[in-house]
């Protein structure tokens, strides 16, 4: 499903170039549940942003299904992301002035889905996530767990092939976190490919495998080994 080759992300500050990601090679199969872990500053969130096409200033090759993302212009990438990817944020990032219903409807309206179809899809999502009774509430009226639940529902309402989650339980207490992880597991069982970033070993255990990032490299990866041997 996903193939990254020599993906790099750097920031230039005057004459200095700071690398956040170095020669990332990564393959993710359809239906996999992959966890990306690593210490702070290792580049986990950056990697997720590149995969989610929120960050376009990278080099290398990125294939998503049959699409060579690295060859696509920015607008086409945005279209592709709309169709194929759902994103769950650590801070939920629900819009405060929209109700739960409207927050769920928003990504569908950006895909120009006709109104009647939107209504049906939102109704289905509310039912699926058992939040029908909360559809007219605003985010400020929900608990953290409920907000994240809505965030997840929003991310999957368009039935994306790929779900990216950046520290999805980072702001939740353990009971809520467990609820969210169970939900991810269920979605994965239903066929959604999931890549999550987390610090939590417990959360990582829900996935199929772990990818460790260290200083922008995939730890234990071929590229990292080559670099280490060059230095030594």
């Amino acid at each position: 499903m996903i193939r990254l080759r020599s993906v790099e992300r750097a920031y230039r500050t005057g004459p200095l170039t700071t690398y956040v990601l170095r020669r990332i090679d990564l393959d993710v199969a359809e239906g996999e549940f992959v966890t990306v872990m690593g210490p702070s500053g290792s580049g986990k969130t950056t990697l997720l942003s590149i995969l989610g096409m929120l960050d376009g200033a990278w080099t290398g090759e990125y294939h998503l299904r049959d699409h060579a993302v690295h060859e696509l212009p920015q607008k086409r990438r945005q279209e592709l992301a709309k169709q194929e990817i759902g994103f769950v944020f650590q801070s939920y990032h629900l819009l405060d002035n929209l109700t739960v219903y409207e927050n769920l409807e928003l990504p569908l309206s950006y895909r120009s889905v006709p109104k009647s179809q939107r209504q049906a899809m939102v109704a289905e999502a509310l039912d699926r996530f058992q939040i029908v009774g909360k559809k007219d509430l605003f985010p400020s009226q929900l608990s953290g767990g409920q907000q994240q639940l809505v965030g997840v529902a929003r991310a999957v309402i368009g039935h994306p092939a790929l779900l990216l989650a950046d520290e999805p339980t980072g702001n939740l207490h353990s009971a809520q976190a467990e609820e969210i992880m169970h939900l991810f597991k269920r979605l994965n069982d239903e066929g959604t490919t999931i890549i999550q970033v987390t610090h939590s070993e417990k959360n990582a255990s829900y996935g199929d495998r772990v990818v460790q990032l260290l200083d922008g490299w995939i730890a234990g990866g071929e590229a990292a080994e080559t670099a280490r041997s060059t230095v030594s």
Partner: peptide, 16 residues
Amino acid sequence: GRELAVRAALGAGRRR
């Protein structure tokens, strides 16, 4: 900024 970034992340193009 956050609101607009979320909207963009959810698929809103610049024109929208």
